[in-house]
Simulated assay, not measured.
Amino acid sequence: MAYARHQSFYLRDKWLSKGLRAVKHNKRFFYIEDSFEKIGLGKNMVEALKYWLVAFKVIEEILQDGQKCHKLTELGEVIFNHDRVLQYNSTISILHYNLVTNSDDQSTVFDWFFNVYKETSFKKDDLLNSFKVWVSQRETKEISDKSLKRDIDCLIQFYSKKANEDDPEDVTFCPFYRLKLLNIEPSASEREKINKTSPAINDISVEALYYTLLDYCNKEDIRLLSIDEIINKKNMWGKTYNLSRNKIIEALNRLTNHEIYPITYVRTNNLDYINVPSISAIQFLQEEHGMEVRV
């Protein structure tokens, strides 16, 4: 499991675009000594940027001519060509999903918070204490409290650091606040209440929900999935996006009307299932954006 690899820096506005363009231009960018000067960020910020790009699964490390370097993944290519400035919530929702699925143990705190932690209303110190207990039960070596606190601080800022409406040049906000997954109730004390919130379907986007559904089914090698699984299973809509049963049904009903890949309902043993088309998540996304599809 991984902790505090973000150097305490949540993703800032335009960082994703900077990182993708840098790797696209030079696969060795993150191994260049003065890369921070070329991109206009501090050294620790550049390390954080590399971490986020890997955790989002938009770049991957490869060996080329015996040297370590990075290249854009297929998802990275789609985002680079169509939404590298994160204009659309569908892109942000897909990147959020990749954090929650925690591939290769890159983003432990996100996996824990959305898939494991059951409280919906809490104070920050209570959240931190719960995370410490969970980590201590799973790690054979001691993880510093400082690292765990950094993870919790970063997690909260990630979904709550809004743009300053009075400053159009503000670049310190995190675009992920637009998903409306967290709400902080103002308080004069440091023990302000934090709530997991259930966003509207359009805040997440049906496109992103379909992408995550296809990705989940392909990883699990299934085509038939019950609605209860979509609500309750790890990495599925109910946990990943805090969605209620009613909102999940609303999204599924919309997907039955998809022009090319409609899902279908199946009733088996008095349970409602959906049948998902046999197409990869990335192929679906490429087709949605009119890109050449790799089969």
Rank of each mutant, 00 (worst) to 15 (best):
F173I: 09
E259A: 14
Y261W: 11
S226H: 00
T240D: 05
D272W: 03
L181S: 11
P277A: 04
Y211N: 09
I194A: 04
P175I: 03
C174T: 08
E220V: 11
I194W: 09
N253E: 09
N183K: 15
K233R: 15
E259I: 13
S187M: 07
N246I: 08
N257D: 14
Y216T: 12
F173D: 06
N253F: 12
K219P: 11
N269H: 12
I227E: 05
C174W: 07
L243I: 01
I260D: 12
I263E: 00
C174E: 08
L182G: 08
T264V: 09
T264P: 11
T240H: 02
Y241I: 00
I249Y: 00
F176Q: 09
N275V: 04
K233T: 13
L243T: 02
S244K: 11
P199I: 01
D203G: 13
N202M: 14
Y216G: 08
E185V: 14
N218V: 09
V206Y: 03
I231F: 01
D203R: 13
R191P: 00
L214W: 05
N246V: 14
S278G: 11
L213P: 09
V266E: 12
N235H: 07
Y265A: 05
E229I: 13
N275W: 01
R191D: 07
Y177G: 00
L181P: 12
T240R: 04
L225M: 13
F173R: 14
V276K: 05
T240N: 02
I194Q: 13
I230K: 04
D272E: 07
T268M: 12
N275P: 04
A208T: 08
Y265T: 04
A200T: 08
T268G: 10
F176C: 02
S198T: 10
N270E: 08
R191Q: 12
E207W: 00
N257E: 14
V206L: 02
C174G: 12
Y216Q: 05
A208S: 13
N253I: 09
L271Q: 08
S280P: 04
S187D: 10
N270A: 10
L214C: 02
S226E: 01
T268I: 15
T240E: 04
G238V: 06
I231R: 13
L209I: 06
E220T: 14
L224I: 15
Y261H: 07
L243R: 00
C174A: 10
K219R: 14
I231E: 06
R178K: 14
N242K: 09
Y241K: 03
N195I: 00
N275Y: 01
M236I: 05
H258P: 02
I263F: 00
A251H: 12
V266N: 11
W237G: 04
Y261S: 07
Y216H: 11
S187H: 07
P186E: 07
I248C: 02
I194M: 13
E192Y: 15
D221K: 15
S280C: 04
S205Y: 06
L181Y: 05
T197W: 06
K234S: 13
L213G: 10
S198N: 12
Y261I: 11
R223G: 15
D272G: 09
L182M: 08
T268C: 15
I279G: 06
